[in-house]
């Protein structure tokens, strides 16, 4: 049984048909990436999974449970984390408070402390900024905070939406190293990226989205060699 599976999912923004029958799976322990150009429906797919929007039709299952009608907070509690596009840092909550919010469902203060310490281990920079407002952090620090916050609930599946957006190359490397490391520790990852090269270098498998439809589905290695992917997403001839 797949950890996450979407079956013929259609999603709409008003009258705009954003997802036109998406079917995909993520197995436990995998890194799966979703690549595609702007407006292809990558973020919409994540939003439909995490309950920020509900599918018009089709089924979303997490760990064997139908979650297509559930509210986001309940989906989170089931173990599915979503670091949203644009990072979603609370600008006037401090770094500490942002992390506390990530552990909102965790009632044991000792566990919260431990996980926060783990986040600081991953991103020591955050510890230096602990009492600073989230809105005063740089883009890179905000992305670190978003990931650290996403880990506070210890999700079984972590969905990352464009973690490399707007970051300097050295930070992009760091973020992807951490993604790989988290996966080694057993976190399943669904990664949405415009930076297809980076995404395909860390992922096991990938899906290519175009205009709300999946056009390719293969291992990352095969996708890197695919002519369509090479010309359209990797900028190679």
């Amino acid at each position: 049984m797949s950890l996450l599976s979407l079956t013929d999912v259609h999603s709409f923004y008003g009258h705009i048909h954003a997802l036109k029958g998406i079917s995909l799976t993520v197995e436990e322990g995998e890194i799966v990436t979703l690549i595609g150009s702007n407006g292809a429906g990558k973020s919409t797919t994540l939003r439909t999974v995490s309950g920020l929007m509900h599918p018009g039709s089709g089924r979303v299952e997490f760990d064997g449970r139908d979650i297509s009608r559930m509210e986001p907070h309940a989906i989170v509690a089931a173990g599915l984390g979503h670091v949203p596009e644009g990072r979603g840092i609370f600008p006037t909550l401090t770094v500490r408070e942002n992390l506390e919010m990530g552990a909102f469902t965790v009632r044991d203060p000792e566990a919260v402390r431990e996980r926060m310490a783990y986040g600081f281990e991953l991103f020591p920079r955050l510890k230096e900024r602990i009492d600073q407002h989230g809105g005063t952090l740089s883009g890179g620090e905000q992305q670190m905070l978003a990931i650290a916050r996403g880990l506070m609930m210890q999700p079984r599946l972590l969905m990352l939406d464009e973690p490399s957006m707007g970051l300097a190359p050295v930070l992009v490397e760091l973020i992807f190293d951490i993604v790989t490391m988290l996966n080694d520790k057993g976190v399943t990852i669904l990664l949405v990226e415009q930076n297809a090269l980076m995404a395909l270098s860390v992922a096991h498998r990938g899906y290519v989205l175009q205009n709300g439809e999946l056009v390719l589905n293969d291992t990352a290695a095969n996708l890197r060699r695919d002519p369509l992917v090479r010309t359209a997403y990797l900028g190679m001839a």
Binding site: L52, V76, L93
Partner: peptide, 17 residues
């Protein structure tokens, strides 16, 4: 803090559980 989080960004707050 949850009230402040919801006031700042309702969607992200819901993703915090």
């Amino acid at each position: 803090k949850a009230i402040r989080a919801v006031a700042q960004d309702r969607a992200t707050a819901s993703l915090m559980g």
